[in-house]
Design a protein around this nucleic acid. Structure first.
Lengths: 267, 267
DNA sequence: AAACTAAGTTTCACATAATGAAACCAGTTT
DNA sequence: AAACTGGTTTCATTATGTGAAACTTAGTTT
């Protein structure tokens, strides 16, 4: 039959969940239906189930669905256990204090960049708003340095999945351009975003690798062309490398999360 | 046969997901099996499906499961669309700056307090680590003020679900004690945490209500007995009330999320 | 090295649960 | 009042999920 999901009913339900999330705003049944491959009653049932399960929230007033609170609860654990964030946190704090610019911590998820943590330039942060955000891999500093250190065939798989939308006129808009850039990055050990995603926004990025060389994530320091330039950002390379190394070291050791006291401090 | 979930296969799968998350650490198949009502192969299949779907992450090295990255992605949207956080953010920033103490924004989820956002006292924040965290309703400032303004029968339902564990010797450890406290809070319009959850930790909390009086969430300012006392915290009541009012007002207006430009700023 | 054991994985007959065409039920519009 | 449109329910059919039992490693013991 038609290409669906694999993973049976559960997979299908999660597909619906993704669809709703993808709208990025409260959506009505009919809007989802229009996007969906599922027949009306099937979709209807999934939405009911997901809502029951608090994976979606339903606003009876406006008759709209949004992703539900249960996700927030679950994600807390996910963030704390399946990402670099807890290990990286102190190092990210230090880095942030040292450079005084916006810093990001990201990981690769599928073929996308997933932002895991962030410190804002000066104003005391509004984080989670950004953690969990996804972005294109081919035109962000963190994205490119992570791709650069993937193994050859993994890169190709990921490259195939990029859509190469030209955000600015500096955006690398072809697989070949990207391959060349990745090769450069591999050479240097770090990379830049030269206003490739947003005009005026530049960054320098450093991969976080295991001792064996596997990609764990990436760090970046972001600024604007009005405040500095690439040469200015390059000055941060040493401290970025240091920070990345520390994270690597901690991650390596910490990999035995031997029964940490689950809740030492109350919230 | 035995009480399960309702919501068919999807519900069961999500139950498993919760179980894994509840461990709060990477878990092996056999550990989950021990907790689970599902027979071995059934559980096995669910874990496979969830892992496939990135709702769980599997570490083949240690043979352990943890909540997966997909949750982080999804929660971002949930947080941004189904919580007070985006509306409250600027007001929370202002409040934080004004009082210089740790402030929390929370909502009620099931019978628990779900922390949605936070600003730390002085050190520039490590938020998401806390957002998504859940806590008991009966012995936190935010929990109690939210319960206080629920309608009568809703309160009773919630009270039944509390477990009344005595965290400290100030903890309200019975339904009746709690009912009395709620009545006081209703009188005053705000409430305290008198070291009920953690010794030395006190807070003043203010509900966020709709104009019609329905509970949306709660705010709190937290401090320690070494730095101040309840009278000291009470001084924050006016600014807390003001902040809560502003959030109410914005939430009321903002409820038509009329096609906001999905991504104005890149990350 | 043969005999246990425990943890994880696969099989397969069976029963349950998901499926979706069609029908139904508001509200709205023509 | 007839013809939409968006949402909900029914129900026979079928696909899917189910779990006892069997099997496969890998790790211990005798």
């Amino acid at each position: 039959m038609g290409r669906v999901t694999g993973d049976g009913t559960v997979g299908k339900a999660l597909e619906v969940l993704d669809q709703v999330a993808a709208f990025g705003r409260p959506v009505r049944f009919s809007e989802i239906l229009a996007q969906s491959d599922f027949p009306k009653p099937t979709l209807y049932r999934f939405l009911q189930t997901l809502t029951n399960q608090q994976m979606l929230a339903y606003d009876p007033e406006r008759q709209t669905y949004t992703p539900g609170l249960r996700l927030v609860r679950l994600a807390h654990t996910a963030w704390d256990q399946s990402t670099l964030a807890p290990v990286a946190r102190p190092h990210l704090d230090a880095l942030s204090k040292a450079v005084g610019e916006t810093v990001h911590l990201a990981q690769l998820d599928h073929a996308q960049v997933l932002y895991i943590d962030k410190r804002n330039a000066n104003n005391p942060v509004q984080m989670y708003s950004q953690a969990g955000k996804v972005g294109p891999a081919y035109c962000t500093g963190v994205g490119k340095v992570m791709l650069a250190f993937l193994d050859q065939d993994a890169v190709e798989t990921v490259i195939e999945q990029q859509s190469f939308h030209g955000f600015t006129d500096h955006t690398l808009d072809s697989a070949d351009a990207l391959r060349a850039e990745l090769s450069d990055i591999r050479q240097n050990g770090y990379g830049f975003d030269r206003e490739e995603h947003e005009p005026g926004i530049i960054c320098v990025a450093m991969p976080i690798l295991t001792l064996a060389g596997r990609v764990l994530g990436a760090l970046s320091v972001t600024s604007t062309t009005s405040r500095t330039n690439l040469a200015g950002l390059e000055a941060y390379v040493p401290i970025l490398r240091e920070t990345a190394d520390k994270i690597t070291r901690d991650a390596q050791n910490w990999s035995f999360p031997d029964y940490q006291t689950k809740e030492t401090t109350g919230i």
